[in-house]
Amino acid sequence: MPDKPKVAFYWCASCGGCEESIVDLAEDILEVAQAVDIVFWPVALDFKRKDVEAMPDGSILATMVNGSIRTSEQEEMAHLLRRKSQILIAYGSCAHMGGVPSLANQFSREQILRYVYEEAPTVVNEQKVRPQPRHQYDGTALTLPEFRGLARSLDQVVEVDYYLPGCPPTPKLLKQAVLTLLSGELPPRGTVLAPDVALCDQCPRKETKPTDLQISEFKRPHWTQIDPEKCFLAQGVVCMGPATRSGCEAQCIQGNMPCTGCFGPTSRVRDQGAKILSALASPISAREPEEIEKILSGIPDPVGTFYRYSLAKSLLRAKVTR
């Protein structure tokens, strides 16, 4: 079947959840597999990089890359797949916005390596050995990919055509995306393939959000018995819903957990964390600095809370350590 459109999947700095989400298509995957030829998918199929290099440029219709870009090898693969593909899709939060791996941008390369190889409580490394990009062993040169200074989103490395948001994207969105691609009726380049309205729009608890929200305490989800009917913010639990694109069908909310923001902001927002901050700062009921401080202590990790998936793509992007 030489005429079927070719599709590739690749992973960079990621957890594997995005790969799992493709499998989560369940029986629908057969429908997809019938419609396309999967030419490259390291997690499932035994193709090598040289096989990709051998393909003519632009011969793949669409490649979905998940994970953020942290190493030199991931960079190279991103460039290679870009060249080989007509359409490159950033798949999942990490490729879309840097994701959880980009929270490491709060620390320098040196801080990360020192902690991981020397200081972490589970590490025993008396010689303080660290992985080296090049090493001579028995007269053979061994190489490792270089660990870059920042974790980046895919579009900070190569041009990206579309984004499938989510940690991971839902099978429903993936299926829709594949069908859209096959239909040939492509949306404008740069589109995030999910609704452009914030999650509150779809939230089953929308009715219970008061118009005069007052927050006198921030509670972390595991600190409190969460009322399964009531708006999380009205319960003092940080919910990223107002600042997060919908399309997930409020799955976390239905599991009685607040939105953590994995779908990223709407197209009209440059910085998701700043937006939820400005939305959450005003309802804080205290007026005195000490009381405000006390309320804010309920959010011990603001960057990890407000920029959990989007630090690389935010206006903050990284912390400069000098």
Partner: peptide
């Protein structure tokens, strides 16, 4: 584009924003 999250409503110093219960 409005998700009806009501964040804006209490912030307006001129009470210029209202929530339309019908359209949410």
């Amino acid at each position: 584009e409005c998700s009806g999250c009501k964040t804006c409503i209490p912030l307006c110093p001129y009470q210029a924003i209202t929530f339309n219960e019908e359209k949410k």
